[in-house]
Structures are given as structure tokens and as C-alpha cells.
Design a protein around this nucleic acid. Structure first.
Lengths: 189, 189
DNA sequence: ACGGCATCTTGTCAATGCAAAGATACGATC
DNA sequence: GATCGTATCTTTGCATTGACAAGATGCCGT
């Protein structure tokens, strides 16, 4: 099914998305070339256009996939807001390419309905994590504010980590480092 | 001095950097074209290469300029860690193009010595803000941890704001919204 | 068997980044 | 003030890319 050699590739769409993620992870979105992806997949240079229309179309598909993976990761993280935050950072590091594209609206069609739907799914997962917050945590029960602060701190940490902007003393395990940071917001005092 | 017409432009380097920032602000770094910048400046398409070598060189210069502007903004923000954080967010929104490039190492030569120096200048400014933190703020005097948490939350908020990822309820003034978020970390309880 | 349709290919064009080689003017030195 | 070195800018050329158009191939249902 997947190893085909004939005229029809059979799995091109998935292969192209995976190759795109690989390239972006190694060299960033700027180095992405549709023709290079086609070469890697062993198809003609115009084959990707059929599945995604253009470059923005491919990145749109990648963003949708990313938002869905994120929603899944957040749902899987049982253990309150702190663990959801760790899962967020973990996702950003493990799926660096998806994460990078997702929050770069100039690279894809961020207003596409499929994107909005996928984004909403992960947004709901995030809010569910905040709802688990035990009341009386210092903040005056402002759930929206809590969510914004939590989102900001994990998103910022993940972004800085991926950008290589953090000093070496932070360590080499993003999960534990993230936990320490998140505890300053919502953890035990 | 600046309105030259002759063979020599006289101010090309600055004009190109300004035009680049403008283009990036409007359409993102992916839409940046050296030839387009040259057209805007009224020079030949190869003129930019002389000043910056290549595209990465231009973005390197933009990143250096950005780190210096950030250091300046942080120094100017007297009023403790909270105000420094607000200044950080304010910088990211006002100089969105610089900010975007600064934390995208794949776009420029992040290992260039001029970049490291400029980055260190803004890093020192950030740490100076953290040192102002009154002790006994809940955290056990872990300055490095405080700095990391503070940097993460303001960087994340700024990034999400610029990406247009935040819901409309947050409002339209990044400064006040940021203040609310930062207060959850270090503000009065 | 046949026809519709999704999939993939070939060919083409404008735009871009980069490099090489040449033209022009500024400024220091005499 | 003339001359020479050099920084600045232009012209030309080439490989790569994204996007489009038209055609080839094979799967699938009728």
C-alpha cells in the first residue's frame, strides 16, 4: 500500500507533510521548497500542487494537523493545569515544525475554516485545564485571566526553548524546566 | 544629505533596513525580497548585496538593531520588574518586525559576534530588572528562576499578541493586558 | 467493457538570490 | 588642484523556485 512505485504514489499527501515537517525542523520554514519535497518523495515537481494547491495550502494542512495533535496532547495530560502546561511545552519541542507554523499566520491561510475548527479544539482543551484550577489560588477566580497567564508562560517558555535563546543553565530537559516555571504561577507556594 | 539623486545613494543601508522592517511588519519575513527592497529604495537589484552580503546578512543587521533597541527600552523602563515586562511587550508590539526576526535564528546568522554582543546587552537589562524584585515574593530568592519565569510570560504574551492568537476579550491595549498577566506572577496578591 | 475522475507528469514563465565584472564618485594624500 | 585607492552602485548572467496549463495514467463504479 505504501511502497508503491507505479504512476500513483498512493500516500503522497502524508509523505509530503512528513517531509515538510522534517525540513522545517532542520532548517526552518524559510528553507522549505515544494520542489525539494517532491524530489524527496520521488515524484514530479508539480505533484504537490495537486494535493495542496500551493505552498500556503501545504502549510495550512500542517497547521491543522498541529492544532489537532496539540488538542490530543492536552487532553491526554491528566493531572491539572501544571501537567497540561508541561504537555504544551512537550508538544512544542517534540513537534517543533508544527508548532512553529501554527503561530506564524503569515505563512498559511489562518482564516481557513478547517484551521479555525482545529484551533478551537485545542483552545477548548486548554480552557478545560484551567477549569481544574482549585479556587482560592491567589487570583480572584478570574478564569480568563488565569488562562491567559498560563498560556503566555508556557508558550513563551516553549518559544524561547525552541529558538535556542535560553542559557545553558536551564538544563536539557524542557519538561522539568517548564514545570519549575509553571509552579511560579500556579504551584504550591 | 538624505534626498540624494546621484550615483551614490548616501543612506542606503539605513533605508534598506527601514524598508525591510516595514515589509516584514506588513507581510512577514517570508515575503521579504531583496530585489523589492532595492526597487523601493530606487537602486539596482544588486545594491543591497554590497551592504549586507546576502539576505541573511540583512536580517542579521536587523536583529542586532532589534536587540539594541530592546536593551534601550528595558533600561528606560524604571519602575521595577513589572514595568520592565510591560516595556518588553511594548517593544515587541511597536517593533514587531525586529522582534520577529530576533527570535528566529534560522533566518539570520545568530552566531555572529555582533549579535551575541547585542543580545548580551539586552539580557543584562532584563536581569537588572529582576534584581529589583523585593525579596520574599513567594519564591525562594531564586533569581535565575524568577528571570526565566518573567521572561517566559512576557515573551509568550507578546508572541501570542503579535500572532493574533489571542481572543478579542483581551482588549486592544497590549500594555494594560500585559500588566494584568505579569501581576499574576510578581504583583501584589 | 467503458467512462468519469483523481492522481501524477511534462513544459513553460516570471521572480528571486547570488556571483562576477564593470562604472562612478568620494576623499585622502601629495 | 591632480591623482589614486576605495567604497558604492550597476549591469549581466545563471540556477532555483512557485505557479500555471495541458496532457498522460490508472483506479473505480456502472
Amino acid at each position: 500500500m505504501t511502497g508503491t512505485r507505479g504512476y500513483h504514489h498512493g500516500d503522497l499527501r502524508r509523505v509530503l507533510l512528513a517531509a515538510a515537517a522534517e525540513v522545517i525542523e532542520e532548517s526552518g520554514p524559510a528553507a522549505l521548497s515544494l520542489r525539494d519535497l517532491a524530489r524527496r518523495a520521488g515524484v514530479s515537481h508539480a505533484a504537490p500542487a495537486h494535493h495542496f494547491g500551493d505552498k500556503a495550502g501545504l502549510l495550512t494542512a500542517l497547521a491543522v494537523e498541529g492544532f489537532d495533535l496539540l488538542a490530543e496532547a492536552l487532553h491526554a495530560a491528566d493531572g491539572g493545569l501544571v501537567e497540561a502546561g508541561v504537555a504544551y511545552v512537550d508538544f512544542a519541542v517534540r513537534h517543533r515544525a508544527h508548532f512553529e507554523v501554527m503561530f506564524r499566520p503569515d505563512l498559511y491561510r489562518a482564516d481557513a475554516p478547517e484551521v479555525a475548527a482545529a484551533r478551537e479544539r485545542s483552545g477548548a482543551a486548554l480552557r478545560a485545564g484551567v477549569a481544574d484550577l482549585p479556587p482560592g489560588h491567589g487570583t480572584a477566580g478570574d478564569a480568563a485571566g488565569d488562562a491567559l497567564a498560563a498560556w503566555s508562560i508556557v508558550h513563551g517558555f516553549a518559544t524561547l526553548w525552541n529558538a535556542g535563546a535560553l542559557p545553558a543553565e536551564v538544563g536539557d530537559d524542557p519538561g522539568t524546566a517548564a514545570r519549575g516555571v509553571i509552579h511560579r504561577l500556579f504551584g504550591p507556594r
